[in-house]
Amino acid sequence: MATDAALRRLLRLHRTEIAVAVDSAFPLLHALADHDVVPEDKFQETLHLKEKEGCPQAFHALLSWLLTQDSTAILDFWRVLFKDYNLERYGRLQPILDSFPKDVDLSQPRKGRKPPAVPKALVPPPRLPTKRKASEEARAAAPAALTPRGTASPGSQLKAKPPKKPESSAEQQRLPLGNGIQTMSASVQRAVAMSSGDVPGARGAVEGILIQQVFESGGSKKCIQVGGEFYTPSKFEDSGSGKNKARSSSGPKPLVRAKGAQGAAPGGGEARLGQQGSVPAPLALPSDPQLHQKNEDECAVCRDGGELICCDGCPRAFHLACLSPPLREIPSGTWRCSSCLQATVQEVQPRAEEPRPQEPPVETPLPPGLRSAGEEVRGPPGEPLAGMDTTLVYKHLPAPPSAAPLPGLDSSALHPLLCVGPEGQQNLAPGARCGVCGDGTDVLRCTHCAAAFHWRCHFPAGTSRPGTGLRCRSCSGDVTPAPVEGVLAPSPARLAPGPAKDDTASHEPALH
């Protein structure tokens, strides 16, 4: 009773807030009518008042009428009001819900409408889902798969039609296919003929059939049928067999079959498995989609049935006599038709004709302190090069084509190399640097090759510096006499390219 009084008091307290929050009759008014909170006449009256005075006034009048009803109607109103779709449509209802007392429970059932309790003993237990329907569909599909699609060729003596089998029958139906081979029951999904010589313990000319048996419980189990008994694959494991010639990621696949039913060829011909030897223990289905393919039931050349050999690369099948050149017997292992072999060759040939990528240039590290003349020119003028003790990398590039010797140069053309002071002394051009340390401070000019250098860098042994005729380390061993002091540049003949010694390969005349 306390809860009923509290709900009535809360409705009177929030009546105006609810009326202002509800700006549309749908969905709240319609939901109240659906849950029998508002009768039909009051529903029509509220809609009429909404058209006349507006939605807030109409709902305020409806809530005032609701306060005169019993506690069950008020409880049902609060339940409908706080439904998710009403809270989404009328956003101003959320503060009312947040301020609702926590001790007021809106989930209690309506009085007088409590459903009768059902004894637990009368409640049926839930049924577990079964796979009976899938099993029945598999039974119905198996006879259809064994139905012949056409008439065999005159040369083929193997013609068999499976008798119709009602689904209610649980007995196995067997077809006489000759040579002791028996087909599987209607619940078998796949059958492959297997030679009895590969099964340990088999006697006589009995041949087993590799099947997948579907049981009534819905589970499946792969086994071997020899005669009327089934054997699990673990009985046929043979770890010492060295003649297993397995197909790549293979499961067994029928390579020879008669049109209309699988079996042995007439005249004692023995149908073979995809792999010879003992049956392997793992009978998992292969991951290669080509091995799941269903080959055609007629020859791809003459479009006739009979004894066919199936290609492992495509769905086509052929007569042995229709092949070019014809085959006398079934080859062992994987067999592919000429079209598949030709496609494989065409895929391999473009790969062989692809040009080989060019090898990157060989990189040879230079000892610290040495650099090529090109690196000396590329440096920024007026700045010493940083990191001189790091190992430089010199790339061996292809030799350029031989060019004509340089033409003779006048001494005026070499004027930018040297600057003559007032006393006739050779001065260095701006930006000249030593080729060893890279520093341009207090550098000297070689009178023979006009290269800038430090005496301490080229002659670290402490050799005394002569007063005139300074030469760098590369030119100090040259027998050519030094030019007379005061000459602007060496003779043009000295600039012609010539053979250089091994220790002077990195010091070429550089223009500054």
Rank of each mutant, 00 (worst) to 15 (best):
S250T: 06
Y85W: 00
K164W: 14
L47V: 03
R132T: 01
R139D: 05
Y85I: 07
P27K: 02
T16V: 02
P115I: 04
N179I: 12
Q173R: 15
P233H: 14
C223Y: 05
G208S: 06
K165W: 11
Q69L: 01
K165P: 00
G228E: 06
K50D: 15
A117R: 04
A271D: 13
E137W: 15
Q189V: 01
A205W: 00
E53F: 05
S99A: 00
D34I: 00
G112A: 15
G227I: 01
T3K: 14
E270K: 06
K131M: 02
A271K: 11
A21D: 00
T151R: 07
V188I: 10
N179K: 12
M194S: 05
P166E: 00
P126Q: 01
L10K: 00
A142D: 11
A144Q: 02
A160C: 11
Q212K: 10
L128D: 01
L210Y: 08
R92L: 01
A21F: 01
V22Y: 01
N86T: 01
F100E: 01
Y231H: 06
Q262Y: 11
S196E: 11
E167N: 15
R272S: 10
R139Y: 13
D84F: 01
S64V: 01
Q189F: 01
G112W: 14
R257V: 03
C223I: 02
S71D: 15
H60Y: 03
E45C: 00
A202E: 07
R257G: 07
A193M: 05
S169C: 09
S249Q: 09
Q108V: 07
Y85E: 00
A19L: 02
P95A: 12
A73L: 05
Q69G: 04
A261M: 12
A246T: 08
A152E: 01
L273Y: 13
L13G: 01
G242P: 04
R203Q: 12
A205S: 11
F215W: 08
P266F: 14
A170E: 06
A73E: 07
H14T: 03
S187Y: 02
Q157I: 08
L10P: 03
E136N: 05
A117L: 12
Q182K: 15
P116G: 05
D41F: 04
A61D: 02
G208T: 04
L128P: 12
P166F: 15
E51M: 00
F100C: 04
I224F: 09
P101N: 03
R272N: 14
K102L: 06
E45I: 00
E88Q: 15
E270T: 06
S196F: 02
E51Y: 00
P115L: 13
V118E: 11
L75F: 06
Q108P: 06
Q157C: 13
I96D: 01
N86L: 03
D23W: 00
A205K: 12
S217D: 15
S187E: 04
S24A: 01
T130E: 03
L63F: 03
P254R: 05
